[in-house]
Write a protein that binds this DNA or RNA. Structure first.
Lengths: 337, 337
DNA sequence: GCAGTTCGTGACAGCGTTTTCATGCACCGT
DNA sequence: ACGGTGCATGAAAACGCTGTCACGAACTGC
């Protein structure tokens, strides 16, 4: 910066003012400085600047994985937003318990970011508390944390509406396939189950535990087993509501392999509206991770500028039922029976 | 840090030495300092440290998108590696041309990272040159840049082996489905085509332009059109080699919808070995983005520690043909004809 | 016992910015 | 013409750390 100052024949103060766009610089000096900076290929050091301003210009993001549609999409909408605000995006990937404890022990984001976005974690109270002491605004994304700014979709309502869609088609035996993931990472599992149960109750149907099965995402074998359990019930379901599209697709795969036509014999409904849902013409309950990412980014930027702002509210985003080709009325005999 | 020094009854120099693990600190003093640091919940400011050391502790990563299996997997293996080395991961997402020009104009990573990993970009000479002047080691990942450290899989060999697999099964009419993506982002498209052509030539077969079609990934309609073009040829192919698993799956989908059994009537071979390939029992040519990410991270760390090291070499990773259930010998009449 | 070494420690000068404060200058109204 | 205002600029003090250098103490070998 001293070089730029010398070349432009001004002091470093003026260079600093110019480069930050402060208005108290005369036009001709500004031009000279900008020219000099360009010629010298100069860029201010964020480190040095942050040392005195106390702001790092970084936004930290804590994610359980990057290998998922949700994270990819959310971050892809978050990143340009931060970039436009002149912020850097710092990613912490915490795939397993070891990394997790190490993260919360060392808290590498401390003093190294102006805000932290925590994606999809089921945090313990202790962990939440340690983040409270981080000295920066923390936004909880895709999860519900009492008393802290949180952003999430209304999973209960989504599952409620999805189940109603199946009920309205005439289904009475509706199964729910839960997704059990790596422990400690919340994928809104319970809320979706609750929505499903609410819909059934609302329709005056009993809750049958046999109709709720679980599997892991990406586990073909597990999905087959779960479907197998449903197919071997005394009174098998005519519709399957899977908590995640991937599992729904696996279910369709299994069913069709066994010559059970979807949706003629069994309807399948997913949740998420991943691209894969479109490929398979899968009826699903859509959520928008892009919206989540954007909202989270905007909230974070707000909180950085005004940490005491009244943003401790929860932002709840909507879901939408998207009927495609895998949901249909149940087969005749079932409807009449 | 002054607080810690005071509490431990030592100077800041000693605190700094202790916290950096230098050996010239007596055990009892070390214990006192560590205790004090813990009690005060102290963490050194990377910004301040980097100001004097000249190292930022950041590794910047330039990616075209995060919404892809490849990026997600590569970064997921890269991240823990950097974390273990005490480095932060800084992500720049450049989804479109506007962001791209803005990135290369402002080069936000300048002075803000110790190394840059550029993923999957087809850079212009001008862009490469501007990265050369960045003052930090730049590693090109999943692309081939002359004279700079690059890491990529041997796409030519992969496609060659994949095509040979089809040839060995008895296929003689083998189509290739190219993927045309967002312009300027290299997905090794050409190299895979070259490998395919090499295999045909090697087998003494002519190159038929009609057998090479193109589509966009994720575009069901486009995939259908591409397959349609192949099916309406005078002599349609008995095997389809798609440059990406997603497209291969779309092809299978289209074929089966038209009652053309895969692999009985038409074999389909993919490339990448994404999780989706496993679900669909898709035969494919596997590459390992996890390995790529790891190699890239290790190389970057090497170059950071010793920028002049002899690492200007290219690291070429292997591919593996994984036969699953979508490749089989061509139907009888074809083989005998 | 004395010079020479080694070892642990502290004082202090930077690192490259921002920011405060002071300064000089032009401009205003009277 | 003169003091007051406002504006563009510069000098210099932080910011929080690291690294160099110097210093004293505790050793070593003769």
């Amino acid at each position: 910066m001293a070089d730029v100052a010398e070349r432009a024949g001004v002091s470093t103060s003026t260079v600093s003012r110019t480069l930050r766009g402060l208005s108290t610089v005369s036009p001709e000096v500004r031009a000279r400085v900008e020219q000099a900076a360009r010629e010298l290929n100069f860029a201010v050091s964020r480190q040095a600047a942050s040392l005195v301003t106390g702001r790092t210009g970084n936004v930290a993001v804590l994610v359980p994985t990057l290998q998922s549609w949700f994270m990819g999409t959310a971050l892809s909408s978050l990143a340009p937003l931060l970039r436009a605000a002149g912020m850097e995006l710092n990613v912490y990937v915490i795939p397993d318990l070891a990394e997790r404890t190490s993260f919360f022990e060392r808290l590498p984001a401390r003093r190294n970011a102006d805000a932290l976005l925590v994606f999809c974690f089921d945090l313990t109270d202790e962990e939440t508390a340690s983040l409270d002491n981080l000295g920066m605004p923390v936004v909880y994304v895709s999860q519900h944390v009492e008393g802290r700014p949180s952003i999430y979709v209304d999973d209960v309502a989504g599952a409620l509406h999805g189940t109603r869609h199946l009920l309205n088609l005439g289904h009475r035996r509706i199964a729910f396939v839960q997704t059990i993931g790596a422990s400690g990472f919340s994928f809104s599992s319970n809320e979706r189950l609750i929505g499903y149960q609410q819909a059934l109750t609302e329709a005056g149907l009993p809750l049958d535990d046999d109709l709720v099965v679980a599997t892991e995402p990406g586990d073909k074998r597990g999905a087959a087993e779960a479907i197998g359990r449903l197919l071997s019930l005394r009174e098998p379901p005519t519709a399957v509501f899977a908590e995640q599209d991937e599992v729904a697709v696996a279910a369709i795969w299994t069913l069709r392999k066994t010559q059970i036509p979807v949706p003629e014999r069994v309807s399948v409904l997913g949740f998420d509206d991943q691209p894969i849902a479109d490929w398979f013409d899968l009826s699903t309950v859509a959520q928008s991770p892009a919206d989540i990412g954007r909202e989270a980014g905007e909230l974070a930027l707000c909180l950085i500028n005004d940490p005491d702002a009244d943003h401790k509210r929860h932002i709840v985003l909507p879901t939408h039922v998207i009927p495609r080709a895998t949901t249909a009325p149940p087969p005749q005999e079932e409807r009449e029976g």
